[in-house]
């Protein structure tokens, strides 16, 4: 699977789950692309944040990742 294909899988999966969940642990992304090594997935996810497709959400102790612009906090801010 190429990086671009993997990115699309991530976006599609997040989109599909977006009605019930907007934030995911990094580990959840590993499961989306089981053929890829965890470290590669981690790098890909971080790259997608740089590209503005995903965004981090941090409680301070734990970091979650979701589609940019999704979730309750954005609705509140709007």
């Amino acid at each position: 699977m190429t990086d671009d294909e993997a990115k699309q899988v991530i976006l599609d999966t997040l989109e599909k789950k977006s009605k019930s969940k907007s934030k995911f642990y990094l580990r959840d992304f590993y499961a989306m692309i089981p053929d890829m090594k965890s470290r590669q997935v981690k790098n890909l996810v971080n790259k997608m944040v740089q590209e503005g497709k995903l965004e981090y959400w941090s409680s301070g102790s734990t970091t979650l990742i979701g589609l940019k612009g999704m979730g309750k906090q954005h609705q509140e801010d709007d």
Binding site: N46, V49, Q50, Y56, W57, S58, S59, G60
Partner: peptide
């Protein structure tokens, strides 16, 4: 209330909403 999407570009840590 803690936690949020605030941060600086490219960084996933260092700032706590």
């Amino acid at each position: 209330k803690h936690g949020g999407i605030v941060g600086v570009f490219g960084y996933g840590g260092g700032i706590i909403g």
